[in-house]
Simulated scan of single mutants.
Amino acid sequence: MNEGTVVGWDGSLEAEQALEWAVRRAEQNDDAILLVDVEDDEKPIPGRVVTPEMVARRHEAADERAARVSDEHPGLRVNTHIMAGDRVEELRRFSRPDNLVVVGTGQRSGPRARYHWSLGARLAATARGAVAVVPALPEEGRTSVVVGVDGSEVSLKAARFAAREARRLGHELVVVHSWLDPLVSVSGAVSEGPLLGELEEEHKAMLDSVVGSLRSANPDLTVTPRLVRDQVYYALAGPVHSASLLVLGTQQHRGVDRFLLGSVSHAMILHIEVPTVVVTPGCLV
């Protein structure tokens, strides 16, 4: 079976929320779900040894949960895969350019630095396809999908992904592009006037080009552009308050930096409010 949705599941509340979100999406896409649970043998717990019995118990719990989902959603195909290993590495193995890996995350009530190495951020930094991080199910009444674009190829992939999700939900697509004043001085003064006007027109032209392409490919979709003169995080934070989904593209690095998520995607996940999909360069959209 070629499951298009992989859910990182461990029986926790966060995993259950991710599963429910994934089930709704999979049903609308006529998709199949694979529940992946990992007995994490990388946890730094002195004296802890992962045994076959521990893995077997996880297998029983996952199979039981999959059976309940199938009973509650007739026609939805749900399989399970259980193993021992490093949770992030094992979930990453299931990431493909044509699928979506879905994980849950807890509410952000404590110091935000503790989420620097969150499961979702670590997966998205090196995944081959798209990764969805679900903090909770969207509240009723949210009627838009928000995507951030900067003209890069991966942001255009994110825009196409977001358009597909907006069509699925019957929501408006809000396309956000932000820009800032250049750090350039002329005769000791910060550039302003005509130069800033020209720069704004350039950014507007890029945004209009992206929006025009999206409208052409999705004639029945309402696409709203937002050009914001501010930092990217703040430009996205406003529209997200009424959104059901946020979609971002991220560049992936090489070497040691390959484990680090792009700064904008990372910031949004640290302050996550709604389900957020991170689209990687290898994603097929």
Rank of each mutant, 00 (worst) to 15 (best):
N2A: 13
N2Q: 12
V6P: 01
V6M: 07
G8M: 04
W9P: 01
S12M: 12
A22R: 01
N29Y: 08
N29C: 09
A32G: 11
L34M: 10
D37F: 03
I45D: 07
V50D: 02
M54I: 09
V55F: 05
R58Q: 15
H59C: 15
D63Q: 12
D63T: 13
S70T: 11
E72N: 10
G75L: 10
R77H: 14
D86Q: 15
R93F: 13
F94R: 08
L100I: 09
L100Q: 03
L100F: 06
G106C: 14
R108C: 08
A113Y: 13
R122L: 15
A124R: 02
A130Q: 03
V131S: 03
V133Q: 04
A136C: 15
E140C: 10
R142G: 06
S144I: 03
V145A: 02
G148Q: 04
V149M: 05
G151K: 06
A163H: 00
E172Q: 12
E172S: 07
S178K: 03
D181M: 12
G188C: 09
V190R: 13
S191N: 08
G193P: 04
P194H: 11
G197D: 13
E201I: 08
A205S: 13
M206P: 00
L207P: 00
D208V: 02
V211T: 06
S216N: 11
V223G: 01
V223A: 00
P225V: 01
R226K: 11
L227V: 04
D230E: 11
Q231P: 01
A235W: 00
S242T: 14
S242M: 07
A243E: 00
S244A: 11
L245M: 08
G249C: 05
T250A: 12
R254P: 05
G255K: 09
D257W: 13
L261W: 03
G262A: 09
V264N: 06
S265G: 11
P275I: 07
V278H: 04
G282H: 11
L284A: 12
